[in-house]
Simulated assay, not measured.
Amino acid sequence: MSEQNVNLEALSAAGVSVWLDDLSRERLDSGNLAELIATKSVVGVTTNPTIFAGALAKGQAYDAQVRELVAAGADVEVAVRALTTDDVRNACDVFADVHTATGGKDGRVSIEVDPRLAHETEKTAAQAVELWETVDRPNALIKIPATKAGLPAITATIARGISVNVTLIFSVARYREVMDAYLDGLDQARANGHDLSAIASVGSFFVSRVDTEVDKRLTAIGTPEAMALKSKAGLANARLAYGAYEQVFQVGPRWQALAAAGAVPQRPLWASTGVKDPSLPDTLYVSGLVGPNTVNTMPEKTMDAFADHGEVTGDTVSDTSAVAQEVFDAISAAGVDIPDVFVTLENEGVAKFEVSWTELLDTVQGQLDAVTGSAAGEA
């Protein structure tokens, strides 16, 4: 009988839901995903265009379905949706028992709207409904970016009773707007007659990318004061976000009324938790962000590192806002334009996912063309 890894089990016991930041047909078909549930405390999965582009470019796991899609006359957009939603649906089924056992809190699998729609509210909201209905599983999460145009789409999607993973959050100011969008959606969902207890949401707050951008600017400044602040922004920013979460979902009067109607909090999710700087501890963004009612979605490399030598030293996010703010005040005083950092990161995040989506379309188009060419040759 399989046993859970003790380090990851301790992380879970401290209130952190362990989610894997990866999904592929190979993981599903081989039983690897089920094994991670049994041995690594994994209780959810996140996907994004980059992950799917990588999965579809490797191996032969998708070949049979690609041939079926060609036979059905599917174009590349239809094919990509079929391939990705099938993976997410099957992953939802793998997590069905976890979803039931946690009362719907975990066992969640995320799928993202087309990133090319990041600045189009109505189209994002429409595609969120389409993805939700296509996957057709209660434990799915539809990922919507936290752009200005994404915020009303989040509200509209929640209002329909659809669970949402809000992605690409970088600043605490935008995170507060995300939480407001969730509360607005819950108010509308209640008015629409939806069961609030069945609606879940996480706010995906990106961590390592903040360090990468801030450290680049601190290095350019080059003063001793600036250099001493390197690799501190990511954790400080996330801890400020947790403080904002506490204000809204622990003591906020508006939330208390919704909670009384059955609503569940929108949990903070720590994303981009693989270290980008090899000089940093490889478990930094896991052990440094331990707290109640949080999610950490990890690349498998980071998960394996924590399984091997990660440590849970207690709650490292509650009541840390004051110290975290001091870090940001010092970074600003050193000469870093903090608001510009967040604008840059959001723009880059959207652009990276658009590039990955294009790569995904190109990969699938190549596979469709190969099957079509092969069939023509045989004829």
Rank of each mutant, 00 (worst) to 15 (best):
S12P: 05
L186I: 05
V18C: 11
T124A: 10
L269V: 07
E35T: 14
E3C: 13
V317W: 00
V210P: 00
N293T: 06
A334H: 08
T134A: 14
A375P: 07
P278G: 10
D21E: 03
A263H: 06
V70M: 01
T102Q: 05
A149H: 05
A261V: 05
A173D: 15
V109F: 12
A307R: 11
G335R: 09
G193M: 07
R81C: 11
T358F: 13
P115F: 03
E177M: 11
D97S: 14
I154L: 01
A220S: 12
G349N: 03
I169M: 14
G274Y: 07
V18A: 05
D337M: 06
L345H: 08
A140N: 15
N7A: 13
N5I: 07
A370S: 13
T47K: 03
Y175N: 04
V16C: 12
N90D: 15
E346F: 04
D337A: 11
V210G: 08
A125M: 04
T134L: 12
V286W: 01
D114N: 14
P278Q: 07
Q60T: 15
T316N: 00
Q256F: 08
D277K: 05
P299V: 01
S201M: 03
L151H: 01
R81M: 14
A333T: 12
V88A: 04
A189K: 02
L20K: 00
P299K: 11
T39N: 07
F306H: 10
R137T: 12
A101F: 08
R254Y: 04
M227G: 02
D180Q: 15
V66Y: 09
A38H: 03
V323L: 13
F353C: 01
S287P: 05
N296V: 01
A10K: 13
N48M: 05
V178T: 07
Q247W: 03
A236V: 04
S204E: 04
D211V: 04
R160H: 09
V207M: 09
R267C: 05
T320A: 11
V76R: 09
G234D: 04
G377H: 08
V290K: 03
K148A: 14
N7E: 12
G262W: 00
A376M: 10
L229G: 02
L56F: 11
K301F: 11
A72G: 11
V166P: 00
A259W: 00
V135F: 10
E225F: 02
V166M: 07
K276E: 09
T223I: 10
E9G: 14
S332R: 04
G335K: 02
Y62D: 15
A226Y: 05
K230V: 08
D187E: 15
G335H: 10
S287G: 05
V355M: 13
V286S: 07
V207C: 06
W132A: 15
S287M: 00
N32R: 15
K148S: 15
L240H: 02
A322Y: 10
L258C: 03
R160P: 09
K123H: 07
E130L: 07
V42C: 06
T46V: 03
A241K: 03
T85Y: 07
N192C: 11
E120K: 14
K232Y: 00
P224T: 00
V80F: 06
V248D: 09
L183H: 08
E130S: 13
D329V: 13
T294Q: 00
L218K: 10
L289M: 01
V202D: 02
P138V: 04
Y182Q: 06
R108Q: 09
S231G: 06
N48V: 03
F52C: 02
Q127S: 10
